[in-house]
Amino acid sequence: MKALMSLGALVGVVGLLLLAGMIFDVIPSNTIRLVEGYMPMQMLFEVGCYVLGFTGLSYMLNAMGMGIPRFWQGIGFWIFFLLYIKYRVYPPIPFSVRAMYGTVGLVAVLMWVSANEEDWKKFKQPILNVLDAQTGFNKVLRYVYLIALPILTWGFSYNVMMPKSEEPIELRTVHPAPPASTKVHGKTYVLQTSLNPYRVNTEGKYDQEYSNSLIVEQGMGRLMKPNANPWDEKAEGYLKYVREGGEIFFQNCHFCHGDNLNGRGLHAFAFNPIPANFTDPGTIAQLQETFIFWRVAKGGMGLPNEGFPWASVMPPWEQHLTADEMWKVILFEYWHTGYYPRTWD
């Protein structure tokens, strides 16, 4: 047990040193990268290791007679967590999300320190000591709080009320609800039921299963499956259309959406937000092909009211491409990213 706790303590100390290095910019926070894409278990795992590390550290310090009071354990862990989400996670998390996480962290700490009567007494003792002010130090501290708390409250209120010159926050709806149908080049497409006419097998029949089996493999490499190379001259059906879609993509779309479809094309950083990252599991992987067709055809200008603040500069591609070309581009995007379009069967 002791050995285990010592190991935990070591983990805790190393972790704290690493975090301190990141806070003071000695170690860049992307030195040990958090895995992008898919469910980021690494972050939760890391925080879990810290929790175990701190448990070990607390145990060892107690064994050495240098135990940290519960009050400071609670406050310390919360501050650690705030620093972790600010300095460890890269790219930086917006304040709104940090505020949410910070609140959850605070609630968790309070639940922990008040889970039983003994711990709760230990936790609130320093607060009661200051309020009771039985010693000179506590008396001074009480006066400091008496003066500091109203000033802090005033400062906070002033900061909130003060008119700001910075751009306001945006509650952007990235995926507004599409219309029931859309008219492109004189033809009406019902979004709930329309299908990509090029998602076909070698016999020319619509075959979702067949096309799904030929997309690139998921994972960081996104490798093509054996015998599923669209650029093979003999490729027929679905793969042939993927190739044609790819050609259209690289002639028209990759300048913004990037040659890896990750939204980081040549022109991408002229825009804010940068163009959609199709490799993110939260974009095309969540949507029906017809939704993408509608967005491609109508562009940023065709966004409905719900799409406030319409922060998209994508041109309405129906003015430049045929419906067939747009369907093929969409086919290529799903193939290249290794995602399946959403279906409702």
Partner: peptide, 22 residues
């Protein structure tokens, strides 16, 4: 879709956070 200022959006490098957006 996170609530953020345009500056935060730029710092994040896209509409979805690459780690937490998932």
């Amino acid at each position: 879709t996170m609530v953020m200022t345009p500056a935060e959006l730029k710092a994040m490098g896209g509409q979805q956070h690459p780690v937490l957006g998932n």
